[in-house]
Design a protein around this nucleic acid. Structure first.
Lengths: 340, 340
DNA sequence: ATGAAAGCGCTAACAC
DNA sequence: GTGTTAGCGCTTTCAT
């Protein structure tokens, strides 16, 4: 098993010094065309490929961005990672992927790990609140973007949509469809730092402005499809006790779970009840009926996050530490006009 | 901005040589406990973290595995990557992720890139046939596993289920439900190296053994949900001309697309027609009605692939170059007993 | 048990 | 335009 060729081998074969070879491969200084040819030939003959590890050691540029995610199996996470990776590649950056599965300690461990691997920046895609992460990152002193779909982050760069406005607009849309008693499905968890605070405020504002009816909040145990399914019974009750005609779920996952429950219990969407989601995850437009939702541009969020890091790496000082991206109300069949 | 501490700084602060520090952090040679303490204290005080890049340069171990995927946005791909990453982490390996989006040249480029980054092994998760990849990989001389859900790979390590048997069993299951005219939906593409060859053979075998009816093949343009949707009209035709009562799709994506078409055209599944898929992607059990399918254990496929690489890295010579994992027929509501 | 020194493969002054 | 040399931060003989 022969070792792969090094710059020395190339230099020897071409009969030049290693610096000349370096100049040729990096195009860093002028090299006479005859010498250049000799070097190129030698490279070709030996199948030489520069060792990026050695290069990184001296240049301090690893062209690596660490990405810590909760679970790449979540479609919204995958979309963000796509954005991160694709834009990263445009600038020659590669992605080092770590999955924390939502564990606090694991997030911390991965930050250390990525640091040792000399990544130039980190995107943390979390679903929890982790104050220690902030301390750690401040020590590391490398560009860092903190993405979180459930909680807001202070003092650190973040990318998201305007959650208040999004919830407000969706509620108004449902109102416009003729629904007056609209339930909002949110989570049971404590609301400190929760984006639900903002979203509930947006929902509430629309309800209050409308003036005729009052809000109906419905609590789940979590944010997953199963949690949405479990809330099904409660929704059915609300339909009878409060004459709920539309349900606005704080996450598409909940909406899909709820629709599954309704399907399994022979309740028709949107004929019997309208359902709206939040996020526009992949399944929203695949499911039948298609789910009315708010498009959170996951791909773009990832793309913007990494572009931010790369800009910082280039020395550009960015002022704002929270970028807001536009959202969109996607009107699909799961919400229908209420016929009296 | 202070640079992070190096082994030299630690040595100086602890008043020992760098070799001693190295011994402490690697636990590679005995060090007297008093010296050890001094070193540990110095490390603590400086917040020293070993530079893995420098370490890699001398040890030749990067603890990096390159993973080239088509698109992490595909749920089956994400599941495989989960398996790869999770098992990798157990052995301290990290994942360098690259998305080729199905482009041949990009696959090749990434192999070179990963090589330069000194990855110790590569998992290629492809959806095309790319002979050049094999040549390239043979030159690289590092462990390599070639995963492909659509085509079979010769002369290279691969992990999959037994596609022939899986299709055979599913067809038998449908037959057992009372369906006699079962259409098989496959792709239009040339079948060289296609796994469809094996799957069609399995389907055919079951049909022939049953003896009473003959096969009905239905061709799509591709493997996606949209392709499944497009075939809807043809299926409806077959229902009338050939009295088709069940459709076995070569991929879950096609089945979901088809069910969407049927939903949009008020055909009930499974009342009017039974639908079976292949793969058990995430949406199969979320969609309503739930899709009867064949479980391809994507997570396990990824896990086995990387374990293979790691074993090879440890010097264990593996004999077989194709591992077959067990599959499972998942019986769900999209297929019903045919009542006469 | 500890230190000195070589060297991993490369870049970047610095000479000429 | 090209070669020489000094590191980058670490591990690993080889002495002591």
């Amino acid at each position: 098993m022969k070792m792969s060729a090094t710059i020395k081998d190339v230099a020897k074969l071409a009969g030049v010094s290693i610096s000349t070879v370096s100049r040729v491969i990096n195009d860093s200084k002028p090299v006479s065309s005859e010498v250049k040819k000799k070097v190129l030939d030698a490279i070709e003959e030996l199948g030489y490929r520069p060792n990026e590890v050695a290069r990184t050691l001296v240049t301090k540029k690893s062209f690596l961005i660490g990405v810590i995610v909760t679970d790449i199996g979540n479609s919204y996470v995958a979309q963000m990672v796509r954005g991160i990776e694709e834009v990263g590649k445009m600038y020659n950056y590669d992605i080092l992927l770590c999955s924390s599965y939502g564990d606090k300690e694991t997030e911390l461990r991965f930050i250390q790990l990525l640091n040792r691997k000399q990544v130039e920046g980190i995107v943390l895609l979390s679903e929890i609140v982790n104050e220690e992460v902030k301390e750690q990152m401040n020590l590391l002193n490398i560009p860092f973007v903190y993405l979180n779909r459930y909680f807001y982050i202070e003092d650190f760069p973040t990318v998201s949509i305007d959650n208040h406005d999004a919830a407000y607009e969706m509620t108004n849309y449902l109102l416009k469809l003729g629904h007056e008693n609209i339930a909002y499905v949110t989570t049971d968890e404590e609301l400190e730092y929760s984006l639900e605070k903002l979203k509930i405020a947006g929902y509430r504002k629309a309800i209050e402005e409308y003036g005729k009816y009052s809000e109906v909040l419905c609590y789940t145990k979590g944010y997953n499809i199963e949690d949405g399914y479990e809330i099904g019974k409660d929704i059915l009750n609300l339909k009878h006790t409060h004459n709920i005609t539309a349900v606005f779920c704080s996450h598409d996952e909940l909406a899909i779970g709820l629709m599954n429950y309704l399907y399994d219990n022979d309740i028709k969407v949107p004929e019997d009840i309208s359902i709206a989601g939040y996020g526009d995850i992949k399944i929203a437009s695949t499911y039948r009926p298609r789910l009315t939702s708010i498009k959170e541009p996951y791909y773009d969020i990832g793309a913007v996050a990494i572009r931010w890091i790369i800009k910082e790496l280039k020395g550009e000082e960015l002022e704002k530490n929270h970028i807001k991206l536009p959202f969109q109300i996607l009107k699909r069949e799961s919400c229908a006009k209420l016929e009296e």
